[in-house]
């Protein structure tokens, strides 16, 4: 069973300390049966990508509350490209992201952007459908 479970890295990049959203989603995903690894705060793009590789995850979930989403995602997606791994992970973003920035994030390769109000179940369904090994 364990070998079959979808693994998700929940990541908090940069200086942002608003982590309640990340924690709630992490707990919700794990209650839904996904394997969740939480990076903790203040992670650099390099640390996030390295953790994703080391932990052999299917999904990288990035939680950003501070308005730094465009810069932060450019750096994380850049790191993935540099290592030739832009296709290796399903990358999703959550937070109060202004609507006009959503297409910009998707152009970078982000699969979906969830708002601070997306029910966790919706996120679980999305992950199962797109990263579905289960």
């Amino acid at each position: 069973m364990t070998g079959n479970r979808i693994r998700v890295l929940m990541a908090k990049p940069g200086l942002d300390g608003h982590e309640l959203g990340a924690i709630v989603v992490a707990r919700g995903l794990s209650e839904a049966g996904l394997e969740v690894i939480y990076t903790g705060l203040h992670q650099t793009p390099d640390q996030i990508v390295s953790a994703a590789i080391q932990e052999d995850v299917n999904v990288i979930g990035v939680s950003i509350y501070s308005g730094a989403h465009v810069g932060a995602m450019q750096k994380i997606m850049g790191q993935l490209r540099e290592r030739g791994m832009e296709q290796s992970f399903l990358v999703i973003v959550g937070g109060p992201i202004p609507l006009e920035d959503v297409p910009r994030l998707k152009d970078m390769g982000v699969a979906e952007v969830f708002s601070s109000r997306t029910p966790v179940k919706e996120i679980v369904d999305f992950i199962r459908e797109r990263a579905g090994r289960q």
């Binding site: 942002d16 501070s66 730094a68 810069g71």
Partner: peptide
């Protein structure tokens, strides 16, 4: 450089 995305944001 570590501050780049966060200057003046919140």
């Amino acid at each position: 450089p570590q501050a780049e995305d966060d200057v003046g944001r919140v």
